[in-house]
Computed example of a mutant assay.
Amino acid sequence: MSKIKIIADSCCDLTNEQIRQHDISILPLYVTLGDKVYRDGVDVTPKMIYEHFEKTNETPKTSAANIPDFIDLFKPFAEAGIDIIYIGISLGLSCTVTNARLAAAEFPNVKIACIDSKNLSTGIGLLVLRAAEMAEEGVAFDEIVKQIETLTDYSRASFVLERLEYLHRGGRCSLLTAVGAQMLNIKPEIAVRNGTMSNRSKFRGSMVPCAEKYAKGLLTDIEKISPRRAFVTYTVDTDPAIVNAVYNVAVSANYFDEVVQSNAGSVITSHCGRNTIGLLFIDKLPGE
């Protein structure tokens, strides 16, 4: 059986260690700051995004990897006869998976599956790691694809935001909502459902107790969650007290095999800003 190559885009927010350990290839999405276009994770950093926003009051624009990008990435593996599984940012948020599928048609001599994660950030990363682990265990290509496509409906991603400035400037919420949230000290929870982001709930007060309450709420029915892995994912420069509040809730549950901390990349940073944090995991399948 041929080797299977696992590929993700930079929105997956996996740690560098995980990427190296599982030999995962990462294709950058694009970030536009003013009139300059950068590659996520290559020549732009979250701190550059913060600096741009603070100077201009303009949020960055993020855009999909294009068809030539995918052709260039797929080509050496396809020429070596290696089958490819790409798991990408939700089609409800980006056309990246569509571009990957168009590029895959250029390589008819190998199997290339381009899976819509219906998710973002480590909601994607959880699926990518599952695929990589199955490939390492020798699971067949078609079975990996089948299992990951099923799991896309069970990967849970959500984040609590300290402020709505970035969402407002990016056109994702009104000025009235943003100002009202700030005046009332409201911290919204943004969740991914059916491939798009929406407001799931809100918390009131300072960020640390709100983050702790958020995490505890997610774990109320913890027996429904897969214990294999959870991510605590947060934007760069998030207050360590906020990170510790969520991480300690996850660890003290004594349930997960591992709780991994990771930094959110340009997609979450561009839309949410500093002091944004999420607890992400996969729910159990029926019968597990």
Score class of each variant (00 low, 15 high):
179 V>C: 02
179 V>G: 05
180 G>L: 11
182 Q>L: 14
182 Q>F: 12
183 M>D: 02
183 M>P: 01
183 M>K: 10
183 M>G: 03
184 L>Y: 00
184 L>Q: 13
184 L>W: 09
185 N>P: 08
186 I>Y: 00
187 K>L: 04
187 K>T: 09
188 P>A: 03
188 P>R: 05
189 E>G: 00
189 E>V: 14
190 I>V: 15
190 I>D: 04
190 I>E: 06
190 I>P: 08
191 A>R: 14
192 V>Q: 06
192 V>W: 05
192 V>A: 05
192 V>T: 12
192 V>S: 01
193 R>W: 03
193 R>E: 15
194 N>G: 06
195 G>Y: 06
195 G>T: 11
196 T>M: 03
197 M>P: 00
198 S>M: 13
199 N>Q: 13
200 R>A: 15
201 S>T: 12
201 S>Y: 11
202 K>I: 08
202 K>R: 14
202 K>T: 11
203 F>R: 13
203 F>L: 10
203 F>M: 07
203 F>D: 10
204 R>I: 07
206 S>N: 12
206 S>L: 06
206 S>V: 08
207 M>F: 03
207 M>K: 06
207 M>P: 04
208 V>W: 04
209 P>M: 06
209 P>W: 06
211 A>V: 02
211 A>D: 03
212 E>T: 05
213 K>Y: 00
215 A>H: 05
216 K>Q: 10
216 K>L: 06
217 G>T: 07
217 G>N: 11
218 L>I: 07
218 L>Y: 01
219 L>A: 06
219 L>Y: 02
